[in-house]
């Protein structure tokens, strides 16, 4: 069982991701509603995986990815965002994210991707 930190400014998105992650048999140990809070929670909880939105207030997903990777170069970050622009996604990958999950998605798709991602990492 892997532990997760969910960082998303939408309460509904956090709730949906939490349900999918738990249904896939993993545990959500913390949630944050902006990038800065996410970085702080990462340092506090050291989760196995992070799901992260790109567009968030205070600190965006790309900046948050950079800070998390600075703190822990082995951090495993999954981008879960509605941003489709390749330049932005590339920027997120350059910052250290390993996987991109495009919103919107069906709950089963996220579950399947999480299982696949965890087995590959």
């Amino acid at each position: 069982m892997a532990t997760f930190l969910i960082i998303d400014d939408s309460k509904l998105a956090r709730f949906k991701q939490e349900k999918s992650i738990e249904a896939a048999g993993h545990e959500v140990i913390a949630m944050a509603e902006n990038g800065q809070e996410g970085v702080d929670k990462y340092k506090e909880y050291n989760p196995d995986f992070v799901t992260l939105d790109i567009e968030m207030p205070i600190l965006n997903g790309i900046e948050a990815t950079k800070l998390i990777k600075q703190y822990d170069k082995n951090a495993k970050i999954i981008i879960v965002s509605s941003v489709v622009n390749k330049t932005v996604i590339k920027e997120a990958f350059n910052a250290g994210a390993l996987f991109n999950m495009k919103k919107p998605f069906k709950s089963e798709v996220l579950q399947r991707q999480i299982v696949r991602y965890i087995s590959e990492n």
């Binding site: 939408s10 998105a13 919107p104």
Partner: peptide
């Protein structure tokens, strides 16, 4: 809140 609305709009479209 608008971040939730965005999720709902995208879900409805999907």
């Amino acid at each position: 809140i608008l971040s939730d609305q965005q999720e709902i709009f995208l879900d409805a479209l999907l």
